[in-house]
Design a protein around this nucleic acid. Structure first.
Lengths: 349, 349
DNA sequence: TTGAAAGCGCTAACAC
DNA sequence: GTGTTAGCGCTTTCAA
């Protein structure tokens, strides 16, 4: 005693079953690639599906206990190349696996993060990708306990000493390398503009900068370190501050490219030339870094790959929930372009 | 084998009903803000919901004929400010109405567009927002016939002579104004780099440029017009071509800011100075336009507002499917910054 | 290998 | 004003 959808012209598995002359359970089996269907019936069902243009109803499937084939993606904002590149990677990987993406932008509001996570895990999505979460502590425990598949991107995978599935880049090493490079060029007073310090990646970059100085026995001078927030205006103002110091730095290392653009702006406003008067290094290597003038020397994070790997890992967890927690760290690489040269007046040691 | 998040602890309307001591139909009424519930019971239900931490199951609601509170959003790519600003607007509006966004990036593949549209309209989303569609003809008819709420963004709202719900900017007028501005500065040879010509907005901008020249009785010279694609490398190469002309232009008008950045790059590579040697105008006014050097004179499209209005219109259609088709055109505005000045050697007429 | 039938959580028509 | 009940389209036992 089954009823037809009076909804509209939507074709359901009933229609397919009727067309193929089988029960709708058999159709379900075929759809889900299950065993126990004779080759002949499978063939008939497939043909009927194609003929009728059957498209599965995601919510029905989900309700009945299946997968939604949707993953949730949480990000801050969308208006920059950084996030764009990561999403491109995620998107590529997901598209291949026929997964759809549900997008949530928190606009840097921490509370939104947890609200969204609650909503999403209500069987709306099969898994969760969190890019640069800022409030992860609030829900990581829950996700873990419910065995809800999730992967963090660009956030060190530690929750109270326990490791959390995550993809990061070698932030510490990248900053260390870049600082060494400036040091080797002969710079001794190197200004540093941090990222948003509540994020692990910002802390790691600062640590890398410090470590490189110490390694070369150069003192870490507090006034040369300015707290930033990864945004261009702050890069601009921080650079202005650094430049107006009694003894200004001969090089500035910004914690991301966007900030570095702000630095470049400030430097030019002062009538100084890059790299003649001051060397500048960024971090990320967003596409834009090639296009500014002069092209920016920066630390490349493999953003697209980070997205891809994160998506791949998530898919892995969805398929295999008992899989071990993995924290993958991808290598960074110093990309030397034209924004740095040796300081004009070589400083004594 | 099959993994499902543990559903046993999920609280349903049954749990709420039991807790509040009412039938679950009453709970449903409260949730959906329906009439015919006594204030007292409503209060009890609300309290129970809060206490139990009830979160609606979207798929169940959708299956039963309700709304999903999700809209589909189709875009090309995410890695640029243009789309970022539009999405910001959409996102703000949707968040206020408690709508979620399902994101689809076509990566400029036309076929993906129609595939996604089919999938989405399968009751997964309540409505569809299409940003800069390139293959709209393939499904607009269907959407219209099924009365499926949809709004196009930045795409002229015409489908075979029939108007389609849409939000656009005054592309023609913007280009016309900018060209007039260059003309008034004294420029006579104005290079033009088009956008991707299969898009209406690109055509309109070219038409605006042409109209302004004609209006001032300046001949339209084909060799000064180069076909672009809205991307930076093409802006660069087109500008190179223009600059190597026997008689190069004294100003270049690019169909979007990103292309204009490419032009700036090319100009500098030639050892020319902006605006002394050549004037440059862009289109869009993405945030980045303020930050390049010199700051770019450009035509502002109210991107964030376009997103907001599109979202608002879509919500309107969802709430009121019989509403009339609206094609909203938002004003553009010439933003004069520092990338233009009068040509150095005034040309004779 | 196949089919029948029981829900999944919810909305809405209909009864009381 | 409130409760009862029949599906929505599908996955998944459980028999046959």
């Amino acid at each position: 005693m089954h009823y037809r959808s009076d909804r509209s012209d939507e074709v359901t598995i009933f229609d397919v079953a009727k067309e193929a002359g089988v029960s709708y359970a058999t159709v379900s089996r075929v759809i889900n690639n299950k065993e126990h269907v004779s080759a002949e019936k499978r063939e008939r069902v497939l043909r009927a599906m194609a003929q009728l243009g059957y498209v599965a109803n995601v919510q029905a499937r989900s309700l009945a206990g299946g997968r939604t084939q949707i993953i949730g993606l949480l990000v801050h904002e969308l208006n920059n190349d950084y996030i764009g590149e990561i999403i491109k990677g995620i998107d590529n990987e997901m598209a291949e696996s026929h997964y759809d993406i549900m997008l949530y932008t928190t606009h840097r509001r921490k509370t939104k993060e947890s609200v969204y996570v609650t909503r999403l895990t209500r069987n709306l999505v099969d898994g969760l990708l969190l890019v640069l979460p800022r409030n992860a502590g609030a829900y990581l425990e829950t996700l873990h306990k419910r065995r809800f598949p999730h992967v963090l991107v660009d956030h060190e995978g530690i929750r109270q000493g326990v490791s959390v599935p995550s993809i990061v880049a070698e932030n510490w090493k990248g900053a260390y390398d870049a600082t060494c490079y400036l040091l080797q060029l002969g710079h001794r007073r190197i200004g540093f503009i941090t990222g948003a310090m509540e994020m692990g990646c910002a802390q790691d970059r600062l640590a890398g900068y410090r470590a490189a100085l110490l390694k070369h026995s150069i003192p870490v001078i507090p006034e040369l370190i300015r707290e930033g927030n990864f945004l261009q205006p702050r890069g601009y103002s921080s650079a202005k501050e650094l430049l107006s110091l009694a003894e200004p730095p001969t090089a500035i290392f910004a914690s991301n490219d966007i900030s570095a653009f702000g630095v470049m702006e400030a430097v030019r406003d002062q009538g100084l030339q890059i790299p003649r008067d001051i060397a500048i290094v960024g971090f990320d290597d967003i596409p834009q870094a090639t296009h500014v003038h002069p092209p920016l020397t920066t630390v490349r994070q493999p953003l697209e790959e980070m997205g891809r790997r994160a998506a791949g890992l998530l898919l892995h967890y969805i398929a295999n929930p008992a899989a071990e927690v993995e924290c993958i760290e991808l290598p960074t690489e110093l990309i030397i372009r034209e924004s740095c040269q040796a300081p004009r007046t070589p400083l004594s040691r």
